[in-house]
Design a protein around this nucleic acid. Structure first.
Length: 212
DNA sequence: ATATCGATTATCT
DNA sequence: GATAATCGATATG
């Protein structure tokens, strides 16, 4: 008899999973798990993402063509694109589409599963009650701080290998109740509903649960 | 509860 | 020199 509380087996995603339209990748990433390999592994479920298209998307960093900053988006799929924003925060994306085409998915919010104490330390906050867990990874800047993600450390990291320091896995969880809304914090193409989230999940970013 | 605003720097014009 | 795929603090209802 297997133990009821044994940790679920997590397997990395194929590179082909990411070699598709970012909108499809975004939907399918909901419910998957982000993992930081460390002495105490950090794991958290993906509950909110945004798609940025390789074509006809003025809000995407790839819109003006390839530069040193965004080159990972044009490379092979399944790699981490990290950028620094507002002089304060890092944001994590995964490259999509086959190599040569841009496109990516921004990680906006996670539900912490393991390593919460380590995440809290990285965020510089103390955990007192269950409500404090929301402060760990609800928001693109927050989740990067909780996972210690920086551009120098993690840009171009292969997220499809469980040997990588940072990778994405499937633990068998099936997403339910996917909703789509406009993207957050952009000024161009702000009307396209390319933000995907698990409706009602308390770890989705933003003030409370809102129906948009 | 929502609204507004300052921080702080890589990147691009 | 302006802008930005954000956050946390402060002000106000």
């Amino acid at each position: 008899m297997p133990s009821r509380n044994s940790a679920p087996k997590i397997r990395a995603l194929d590179r082909d999973f990411f070699a598709r339209d970012p909108r499809r990748v975004a939907r399918q990433l909901l419910g998957k798990v982000l993992i930081r390999n460390a002495s105490v592994p950090l794991t958290a479920r993906i509950v909110e993402v945004e798609a940025y298209l390789g074509k006809d998307d003025p809000a995407a960093h790839s819109a003006a063509g390839r530069t040193l900053r965004n080159s990972v988006l044009f490379g092979p799929p399944g790699h981490a694109y990290i950028y620094f924003i507002y002089g304060n925060h890092y944001c994590l994306n995964v490259s999509c589409e086959p190599a040569g085409q841009a496109g990516g998915v921004l990680f906006r919010a996670l539900e912490p599963l393991t390593g919460m104490e380590e995440m809290a330390q990285a965020r510089g906050i103390e955990l007192h009650g269950p409500k404090d867990l929301r402060q760990l990874t609800s928001g693109p800047g927050r989740l990067c701080e909780a996972f210690g993600i920086t551009r120098t450390r993690d840009n171009d990291c292969d997220l499809t290998s469980d040997k990588s320091s940072l990778w994405i896995g499937d633990d068998g969880y099936r997403a339910r109740g996917i909703a789509a809304t406009p993207r957050i914090g952009i000024t161009k193409a702000a009307d396209m509903p390319l933000r995907y989230l698990l409706a009602g999940n308390p770890f989705v970013s933003g003030p409370k649960i809102r129906l948009e």
